[in-house]
Design a protein around this nucleic acid. Structure first.
Lengths: 205, 205
DNA sequence: TGCAGATTAGCACGACCGTTCGTACTAAAA
DNA sequence: TTTTAGTACGAACGGTCGTGCTAATCTGCA
């Protein structure tokens, strides 16, 4: 099973590049050079560049699941789980060992007008994540941790905005206050939606 | 002055492409083909691809100034001007005739790890805009339209997040509710900062 | 140990990239 | 009128892109 090891090496190196420079920077030639493979040798593992990109996105999904979803699900349902989910979400790529930013966020901007399988893959990953967030918000509402008439979709939408602002703040501006800003914004959104301020303290730590 | 006309044609076509497909999609060859010029003929107007990209960014800046800043400044200082500024900001690129999204926002994601003159240009454009927003927020605070202890920097940061969420919502997800979501979020931020709800009605229209 | 099949290298391809060159034509400056 | 600068062309440069083909090498199993 030498193949799997090589493939893993390629995927891991590719993820770094995708994270740091976006899809445009992930080229078969450069990736082959970095992994001490020939272009054709690497190419043999995937059947096309598209397939490579999708494999990378799948790997990113797995990574996010392991570093964000899994640990968050160990928290009790409702506001605690939601807080854990969002807290682990912000900056997850760095914590997962990626030197760059979130690959899916990058795809949201790089592929907004590029139809195709890769875009669809980014779209489904994003949709899946937002659905999970939505479920967590709904649980918090149902458990009375948030106002019963809170607009769950709107909350998720705003959380996504905070995430993107955090992404740009960290990656482009290298703003050292990005984390604090994001937590403030998060607390504000949840507080307005009825969260008990005491329960949000953890987020300000 | 045939030169200026040709240059304008190139810039205008280039802006469309930059807006629709990002920097990677603006290539000298394709741009030349679209403007019925030879590659070298087009190249003579700019001295490098970098210079082309900067010229495009400058044009985008001018466009934004004309479509966002200028009309907003006709509103009275304080909350009204701030509301106008933000209202004109969201979706300005479409209103300016661009078929794609905001070129500067695209640059924030595409060039986050690509040092160079182009990145610096995006950075300065973004910084300039945020400074303007910051000034408008401060005026609203000083005039008593917002709480005297409102955190202006935090407000600007969150507005940027709403803008990015709106961008993704419109460009990637083609979400028809993007505008409404953004306005809700905007109203929430300002209301929490002390704005009179009645003064925010205009934003909900 | 030897063989079958998986794995990788080598090479070539057509396309496109940004850039440079030499060369026209045009219009303003001398 | 002569000179010069700007504008545009076609051809070509060295590179890199993704993708095929064939041949060699290596691996795991009998």
């Amino acid at each position: 099973m030498k193949s799997a090891a090589t493939r893993d090496k390629v995927i891991s190196e590719g993820l770094q590049r995708l994270s740091e420079g976006g899809f445009a920077s992930v080229t078969i030639g450069r990736l082959a050079e970095a992994t001490n493979l020939s272009k054709s040798g690497l190419f043999a593992h995937f059947q096309s560049r598209e397939a490579l990109e999708i494999a990378l996105l799948d790997a990113a999904r797995d990574m996010a699941h392991k570093h964000v979803v899994e640990p968050a699900l160990r928290n009790p349902e409702g506001l605690p789980r939601l807080m854990a989910l969002v807290g682990l979400w912000f900056g997850w790529s760095a914590r997962a060992g990626l030197r760059g930013g979130c690959p899916i966020a990058a795809g949201l901007f790089e592929l907004d007008d590029v139809p195709g399988v890769v875009r669809d893959c980014v779209s489904s990953a994003d949709q899946e994540w937002r659905a999970l967030l939505r479920t967590a918000v709904q649980a918090a509402i149902d458990l009375g941790h948030l106002y019963p008439d809170a607009d769950g979709d709107q909350i998720v939408w705003e959380l996504c905005g905070i995430y993107l602002a955090h992404h740009v703040s960290m990656r482009f501006h290298r703003d050292p206050h990005a984390g604090r800003r994001a937590r403030h914004a998060l607390v504000a959104v949840l507080q307005r939606s009825g969260a008990n301020p005491a329960d949000l303290q953890a987020a300000s730590a």
